[in-house]
Amino acid sequence: MKNFFLFLFRFIITFGYRIKSPHAIPKTTTLDLAAIQNTAKISFFTVAHPDDIELFMGCEARHQIIDNPDDKKVFIVLTGGDANRKNRKKVFRAISWWHAREKAHTAAISFWNNNKDQVVENEVLINQRYVTRISIGSSIVLYNLRLTDADKTTSLDELVEHKSQYIYDVVHQQQYSLEDIKESLINIINLEMANAQEAAFYITDEDSERNPGDHLDHRATSLILLDIYPKISVPKKSLFAYLTYFIKTKPINLQGEDKDKSFETWKIMGDELDTHGYKKNDDPYHMQWVGKEYKSYTIPASQENISQS
Rank of each mutant, 00 (worst) to 15 (best):
F56I: 05
K295I: 01
E304W: 04
I95G: 03
L273Y: 00
P251H: 13
M57F: 07
D180Q: 11
D51Q: 05
F11A: 14
N87W: 05
A241Y: 08
I126N: 03
H276M: 05
Y176M: 08
P26K: 12
T153Y: 02
V119M: 08
L145T: 05
T106L: 13
E206A: 15
Y245W: 09
K103Y: 10
S309C: 08
K116A: 03
R133V: 02
L125Y: 03
F45Q: 08
L142K: 01
K90G: 14
D205P: 08
R219E: 08
R129A: 06
I134D: 01
I232Y: 08
K292T: 04
T106S: 01
Q173F: 14
V77P: 01
A104K: 00
F11H: 11
P284R: 09
H276C: 07
R88D: 09
L125H: 03
A94F: 04
K89I: 09
F201P: 00
L156D: 00
L216A: 13
N253E: 12
I36T: 10
N115I: 02
H286G: 01
D282N: 14
I126G: 11
Q165E: 15
S296E: 03
R101Y: 05
I181G: 02
Q303C: 09
H276F: 15
N281F: 15
G277W: 11
N113G: 07
P230Y: 07
L78W: 09
A48W: 07
D32Y: 06
D70E: 14
T106C: 01
L191C: 06
P22F: 09
T275E: 12
N87Q: 13
E183K: 14
R210D: 09
H49E: 04
L8E: 04
K163R: 13
A61N: 13
H218Q: 06
F75R: 00
F263T: 00
V74T: 03
A241C: 13
K295D: 02
I134T: 02
F56R: 03
S233K: 15
G137L: 09
I36H: 06
Y242S: 11
D271V: 12
F9C: 08
E54A: 14
S302Q: 13
S96D: 06
I224C: 02
V47F: 04
F111V: 00
S138D: 15
S307Q: 14
F4H: 10
P284N: 10
Y143K: 11
Y297V: 13
F15A: 12
Q128A: 12
S262E: 03
I65G: 06
Q174F: 05
A194W: 00
D283A: 13
V120A: 13
V74A: 02
F201W: 09
Q197N: 12
I66C: 10
D180R: 06
S164A: 04
D67Q: 13
D271F: 14
F246K: 11
V131L: 12
I247S: 02
H215P: 00
N115F: 00
S164F: 01
L6S: 10
V141N: 03
T298R: 09
D214P: 01
D260E: 15
G58C: 09
A40P: 00
V131H: 07
D70T: 13
H276G: 04
I268N: 09
K182L: 05
Y242C: 04
A108R: 01
